[in-house]
Amino acid sequence: MPLAVVEKLLALLETLDQSIDETPPADQLSRLGDKAYCAWYAKLDQEAEALVAAVFPENKAAATPEIAVYLKEVAGNSTRIDYGTGHKAALAVFFCCLCKIRALRVDDQLAIIFKVFGR
């Protein structure tokens, strides 16, 4: 079963990639973050719970809202339009949550590293 979760995580990443492709960079003169990111993040904010719910079994649905927060944190901050070490740490917490609800196991760590991180 957990390998199926890894495949679902890869599908989640593919969905996020498609969303990025659908949100072209803004035509702006700012040297700071691209304002199109805010539109992309707003879409992620709306869809995060559904994306997370698709990763693990229905009997774990109660965990969806909390884990979705970490998925959104992984993507950066839409107010400051930035990305830093705290956002990277959120990725570790996201995976930790999936392990805590037993969607992933310690035995899955190689698949997480080589398949998911590799993606």
Rank of each mutant, 00 (worst) to 15 (best):
G76S: 08
T85D: 14
Y70D: 15
T64S: 14
F56D: 01
E47F: 00
R80M: 09
F114T: 06
G118I: 00
G33H: 00
V6F: 04
D82V: 04
L91A: 09
A92C: 07
L32S: 11
N77E: 11
C99N: 12
A63Q: 11
P57Y: 01
D21Q: 11
L12M: 13
T15C: 05
F117M: 09
T85F: 09
V116D: 08
E49L: 07
A53C: 01
T23P: 02
I20M: 04
A62F: 10
I112E: 04
L29W: 01
L91K: 09
L91C: 04
R102K: 15
A53K: 10
F94Y: 14
T23W: 02
L32D: 11
K8C: 11
I113L: 14
E22D: 15
Q28C: 05
S78W: 07
I112S: 02
I67N: 07
L71Y: 08
D107P: 02
E7P: 00
R105P: 00
G33S: 01
D82F: 04
S19H: 08
E14A: 15
A50W: 01
S30T: 13
L12H: 06
R31V: 10
L98T: 01
F56M: 12
E66Q: 13
C96L: 13
D21Y: 05
V106Y: 10
L16R: 11
L29D: 12
L3K: 10
F95T: 01
L98F: 11
N59V: 05
D21W: 02
C38S: 15
A92R: 11
A48P: 06
G76P: 07
R102D: 15
T79W: 06
A61F: 03
L110P: 03
V74F: 11
I112K: 02
L10W: 01
V52S: 07
Q18T: 12
C97E: 15
K72D: 03
K60F: 00
M1K: 10
Q109M: 09
M1Y: 09
N77F: 00
L3W: 05
T15H: 08
K43E: 14
T23V: 04
N77L: 03
A42I: 00
K115L: 13
V116F: 08
L98C: 06
D27Y: 06
F56Y: 13
K35W: 07
I112F: 05
L104Y: 08
A61V: 06
V93Q: 12
L98K: 01
Y41H: 15
L91W: 05
A90W: 10
K72G: 03
L98V: 02
L29H: 05
L98S: 03
C99Q: 15
D17H: 11
E49V: 05
P57I: 03
R119M: 02
E22T: 03
F56G: 07
H87W: 01
A61C: 06
G33Y: 03
F56S: 04
I101H: 04
I101T: 03
K88R: 15
E58F: 02
P25I: 01
Y83G: 04
L44R: 06
E7G: 00
V69N: 12
C99D: 05
G33F: 02
K35N: 07
A103R: 07
